[in-house]
């Protein structure tokens, strides 16, 4: 399961952050998830709830997911368009010379902690 692997890395990173900053408890964890990152948010939250109780510093944490819209750049006509709606083919000129600008990330933006 893909989400499980990501959650494992997230928990590991937060454990390290807690140690480095001498934190005793982490509250809100704000995660930015790209529209085409392949992460199913419901599965992700379930996996988080499963793992957080196994990490003392995370046991009372809550996960807040923010979506980053996916945007693709067309190299042929030099315009950007919505990735989810049009995919790899540019809706303006029909070119396939297109590259994803953003939307596949999974970034820990900030955490609330004490």
């Amino acid at each position: 399961m893909h989400e499980m692997g990501i959650v494992l890395h997230l928990a590991k990173t937060l454990d390290q952050t807690a140690e480095e900053n001498k934190l005793t408890a982490i509250g809100r964890v704000v995660l930015q998830v790209g529209e085409v990152s392949g992460i199913m948010t419901e599965l992700f939250t379930d996996a988080w709830d499963y793992f957080k109780v196994r990490h003392p510093v995370l046991k009372d944490s809550t996960l807040v997911l923010e979506t980053i819209p996916a945007v693709t750049w067309c190299d042929h006509c030099k315009q950007t368009y919505e990735t989810v709606k049009y995919g790899k083919t540019c809706p303006y000129c029909g070119s396939g010379e297109t590259w994803l600008l953003r939307g596949n990330e999974c970034v820990i933006k900030e955490i609330e902690a004490e």
């Binding site: 990501i6 890395h9 997230l10 590991k12 990173t13 390290q16 952050t17 900053n21 934190l23 509250g27 995660l31 990330e105 999974c106 970034v107 820990i108 933006k109 900030e110 955490i111 609330e112 902690a113 004490e114």
Partner: peptide, 15 residues
């Protein structure tokens, strides 16, 4: 409670 800005990719620890 304080806010800590991380802006770290989740897979950073793996990298």
């Amino acid at each position: 409670m304080r806010i800590i800005q991380l802006n770290a990719t989740v897979t950073d620890s793996n990298l």
